[in-house]
Design a protein around this nucleic acid. Structure first.
Lengths: 204, 204
DNA sequence: CGCGTTTTAGAGCAGACGATCTAAAACGGG
DNA sequence: CCCGTTTTAGATCGTCTGCTCTAAAACGCG
C-alpha cells in the first residue's frame, strides 16, 4: 500500500553494529553510520528513531548474534566441564583473532554507556543471563564430579563471569595469548576443569 | 621573570581527572573541563597542549593517586596472602561506595581509548605493573604455604588481574555486593586465601 | 490511472565541538 | 619604571554534530 523499504533490517543493523563495536557510541557519528549502512540520515531516523535507539537495536543484534550463539554452541559439548573449557577457548581465540582488538560490545557498552539508566538495565539483564549460564553449567559439572565443590556454584559462576569480562578488557590493550589463556586456565584448573591450549596455533 | 600561573597543577589535574572519570574521554567537552578546572580554554591549551595530552596527564594523575597508593597500602599487610585479600576487599568497597558507579579510570580508558596506539602502550605498561604486583605477592604467598601451588604464580596472577578488571566492569552496571564479593571470594578461596566479608556492613 | 501512504534523497537547521586569536594583566630583571 | 616574558580573559574561528525539512519516488488499492 506504500513504498517498500529498500534495505534489509538485519543487514543494516549488522553494519551499525560494526560501527559501534569498532568505535563506541560517542565516537561514531551519524554520517559514518549512514555511509556504512548505505542509508540516508532521513531513512535511518525514520526507521530507528534516533542514534541511541539505533545503538540499542545494534546491541541487541550483537547479543543475539554473538553471545547467545556462543552459549548455544557449547551446550552441545560432551560434558558440562568440557563446555566451560570450550567457552573460554572460544573467547580467547575470538579475542586474539581480531586485528582491531574490539573486544566485546557488551563489555564496551557496560563501560561506556552505564550512565544511561535504561541501557544499564538492559546490560545488567544480559550479564544476568551470562551468570545464570555459568551457574547452571558449573553446578552440572559439580554434580558429575568434574568440578570442585570447594566453592558454591553461585560464587564460582560469578568468578567465571568476572574472568571473561576481564579477559575482554585485557585483549583490547594486550592481546597476548599467554596472558589471556593463563588467566582462563588458572580459573579452570582451580575448579578442576581441563585447560585450553596455549602454545602453538589454536586447535580447530 | 614572567606572570606566574594562578592555578595549582595537581588541583586542576584532579578536576580534569574527575571529569574524564565520570564521563569518559569523548563525552567530556573542553568547556566542561574549563569550568571544572576553573581555567579558561586558552590557559588549558597553553599549559597542557590539547585535550588528548590533558587526558594522558589526568590518567597519570589517577594512576599515581589511586592505583599505586592502593598497592602501596596493602604491601604493609602481615602476610602476602592477607595483602591479596585486603586488595580485593578494597576494590569491592571502592566499587560499591561510588554512587556514580564510575568504576576504574584505567579500565574505562583501556576499553574506550585502545585505538590510540600511544595510549594503548601506556595502559599496557600499567597493567603489566598490576600483573607483576600480583605475581610477586602470590609467589610470596605460595612460598609461605598460604596459597596453593596448583597453578603457577604467573597464571594465578593473570587470573587475579582479570578478576579485578571484571569486577570493575561489573560494578558499572550491577553494583551488587554479593556479585562482586562472590567473584573475588571464589578466586581467593580456590587459591587457599582468606575471604573478604560479604554480609552486613564493611569491616573497617 | 490517480490516490493515499511510506520511504527515499539531499540540502540544511541550530548548536556544540576542539582549538586559537588578540589584548590586557602580572610578574622579575636591568 | 619600562622591558621581556608568560599567563590570563573573552570573543571567535571553521568544522562537525545529531537531527529535520521539503520533495520526489515507489509502491498497492480502488
Amino acid at each position: 500500500m506504500a513504498r517498500p523499504r529498500e534495505f534489509d533490517e538485519a543487514t543494516v543493523l549488522d553494519a551499525a553494529m560494526q560501527c559501534f563495536w569498532a568505535g563506541g557510541f560517542e565516537a561514531t557519528s551519524t554520517r559514518e553510520l549512514a555511509e556504512r549502512m548505505r542509508m540516508t540520515p532521513a531513512s535511518i531516523y525514520n526507521a530507528f528513531g534516533d542514534k541511541r535507539a539505533l545503538f540499542r537495536r545494534a546491541l541487541d543484534h550483537y547479543i543475539a548474534q554473538t553471545l547467545h550463539k556462543r552459549i548455544a554452541r557449547v551446550e552441545g559439548c560432551p560434558s558440562p566441564g568440557a563446555a566451560i573449557t570450550q567457552f573460554f577457548s572460544d573467547v580467547v581465540e575470538r579475542s586474539l583473532d581480531d586485528p582491531q582488538r574490539r573486544g566485546c560490545l557488551l563489555v564496551n557498552s557496560a563501560v561506556e554507556a552505564s550512565h544511561d539508566a535504561e541501557m544499564r538495565e538492559a546490560l545488567a539483564g544480559e550479564l544476568d543471563q551470562y551468570e545464570a549460564f555459568f551457574r547452571r553449567i558449573l553446578a552440572a559439572a559439580q554434580a558429575t564430579g568434574e568440578a570442585t565443590t570447594a566453592v558454591s556454584a553461585e560464587d564460582g559462576a560469578r568468578q567465571l563471569l568476572a574472568t571473561v569480562l576481564g579477559i575482554r578488557v585485557l585483549c583490547r590493550v594486550r592481546p597476548d595469548r599467554d596472558l589471556l589463556a593463563g588467566a582462563a586456565n588458572a580459573a579452570l584448573t582451580l575448579l578442576g576443569l581441563p585447560s585450553i591450549p596455549v602454545a602453538g596455533t589454536p586447535p580447530e
